[in-house]
Design a protein around this nucleic acid. Structure first.
Length: 491
RNA sequence: GGUCACGUGGCCGAGCGGUUAGGCAGAGGUCUGCAAAACCUUGUACAGCGGUUCGAAUCCGCUCGUGACCUCCA
């Protein structure tokens, strides 16, 4: 843990702060997961990868991390008139499915996409629908505190009253008076005392199929409640890091804080982290805007905006090339540039494996390089800088293998350990192998073919050697002639 | 309308008071039977206008432009 010196930009203070966990050596991490009513799109990949990076770096540094990422499968309304339809239920009705069938279907598909992106599984993945009892309990606590009120079987959070003693808007920088003046009047809000009040429990209409009994009515919990309840249940009343997309800052995360403070008296989160959005032609990519591209569409190249298909690793690297708090604009050019850069990095990783020490003293300072890498990741997970340093290492690796740079035994080991740790363990990149079953056979065949080609070259039979290379090229196998023999790769 | 961000070379994208970001593309070279790869060299950018400063992409003000949130959203 000696290289670990992380500072995190805390949305709460709008400053970078040194990361000091509540319990030394441990970290409780909660991230808002998907609402499972549709396939994951590029926008979903960003928080998943951002907080996967954080999770990986903490684990790499020796932390014991409990990572909780929820599945929202109830209570998330189509619009916030608060009598809107539940997203899951709507999808279920459209497709004539049992709601939990929809939930399971999209949860499975989400998991598959995450695996493709090499996003590690969280330690706990709770479902909102599995925590109705706890949610009812928290509503009772908030009612007991006098900060919620019941109307016709529904329970609302009394924002104005809460704001008398606490600051509603502290996370997102809102002022309640402004909110009261600027919040649009929506239909179905006549039950609320103030338009800023939000639902904790909603009485279900007659055709509402997802419903649970409660002291107030047969109904369902409000969306903001699940995260308050599940984070408290699994991480405690005060935990270290809460992450999510910037668009969730208000009202979702603001409401979470209010609910926790109202129910337990505790400020729940020490560090709030928010990733920025992915844009497409400068505009936010989102389900409601209809301009999103599903991850599967990327993998298959099936979308009118895509020139061709892109691998999951390509997308992962593309996302890591930008800082998580900067907006990132999608384009085919940017994706293809990222792909080439990533290949360069992974090729270097491969040649690093075969590298031999070639001197007693190294001509470059590997320890200084390693320190720069840690400095970058420690600085609020600055992956673009980290990647720039990794490209420095690529240059060194290639120079060593060409004999233009000297490296000692111990420095080579340091370079190898550090490079691999960052590329594979922390950034979570992986070589995309086809199916490993056939690989051994392919390797054998390729060795044979290249040997035959080498013989032809020795005999200056350029016709044969070029024909072999061209034919392989047609099969997307690229042959490179190096100093000590030829190598090949599938493009 | 309110609140808050942002505007960097052909493209993507860091930096946020003084010294090369990096990647992709481009140009020249080395190597090679040729090719590819690799390596070396190369570009001198920070929306505009003012101001602060010995010195500003970097701080302040104004103007223009873009976006986010204020309603479900990763």
């Amino acid at each position: 843990m000696k290289d670990f010196n992380l500072s995190i930009y805390n949305t709460l203070s709008r400053k970078k702060e040194k990361y000091e966990p509540i319990i030394p050596g441990h970290t409780g991490l909660y991230v808002c997961g998907p609402t499972v009513y549709g396939d994951a799109h590029l926008g979903h990949a960003r928080p998943a990868i951002t907080f996967d990076l954080l999770y990986r770096y903490l684990k790499h540094s020796g932390f014991k991390v409990r990572y909780v990422r929820n599945i929202t499968d109830v209570g998330h309304l189509v619009n916030d008139a608060d009598d809107g339809e539940d997203k899951i239920a709507k999808k279920a009705r459209l497709e004539e499915l049992e709601p939990m069938q929809v939930v399971q279907y999209y949860t499975n598909r989400y998991h598959k996409n995450m695996e493709q992106l090499n996003v590690l599984n969280p330690d706990i993945e709770p479902h909102a629908s599995g925590h109705i009892i706890e949610q009812i309990e928290m509503i009772k606590q908030i009612l007991d505190a006098g900060l919620a009120y019941e109307v016709n079987g529904s329970v609302y959070f009394d924002v104005k009253k809460y704001n008398e003693k606490h600051h509603y808007g502290k996370l997102s920088g809102r002022v309640l008076d402004d909110l009261l003046n600027t919040t649009r009047t929506l239909d179905g809000q006549e039950e609320k005392r103030n338009p800023v009040d939000f639902a904790l429990w909603k009485k279900a209409g007659k055709e509402h199929i997802m419903r649970w009994p409660s002291p107030w009515s047969d109904g369902f919990p409000g969306w903001h409640l699940e995260c308050s309840v599940m984070s408290t249940k699994y991480l405690g009343e005060k935990f270290d890091i809460h992450g999510g997309g910037m668009d969730l800052m208000f009202p979702h995360h603001e409401c979470e804080i209010a609910q926790n403070v109202a129910a337990t008296g505790n400020e729940p989160v020490k560090y709030w982290m928010h990733n920025n959005m992915i844009t497409i032609n400068g505009q936010k990519m989102g389900k409601s805007l209809g301009n999103f591209i599903n991850l599967d569409e990327f993998f298959k190249g099936e979308h009118k905006l895509l020139d061709r298909s892109y691998t999951a690793m390509n997308i992962r690297f593309f996302i890591l090339m930008a800082h998580y708090r900067s907006p990132l604009d999608f384009s085919n050019e940017a994706l293809q540039a990222a792909e080439k850069g990533m290949k360069k990095l992974l090729n270097a990783a491969e040649s690093l494996e075969k590298l031999q020490a070639n001197g007693d003293v190294s001509t470059e300072d590997i320890t200084a390089w390693k320190n720069k890498c840690y400095e970058a990741i420690n600085d609020d997970l600055n992956t673009p800088i980290l990647i720039a340093h990794l490209f420095d290492a690529v240059r060194m690796i290639n120079s060593i293998s060409e004999g233009k740079m000297k490296i000692s035994e111990s420095d080579l080991e340091l370079l190898r350990n550090t490079f691999n740790a960052f590329v594979f363990d922390v950034l979570g990149l992986e070589k995309e192998l086809s199916d490993s079953k056939g690989d051994q056979v392919v390797d054998g065949l390729m060795e044979l073919i290249l040997e035959m080609r080498m013989n032809a070259r020795k005999n200056k039979d350029w016709g044969t050697s070029d024909a072999i290379r061209d034919k392989l090229n047609e099969l997307s196998i690229k042959v490179k002639d190096g100093k000590e023999g030829s190598s090949w790769s599938i493009e």
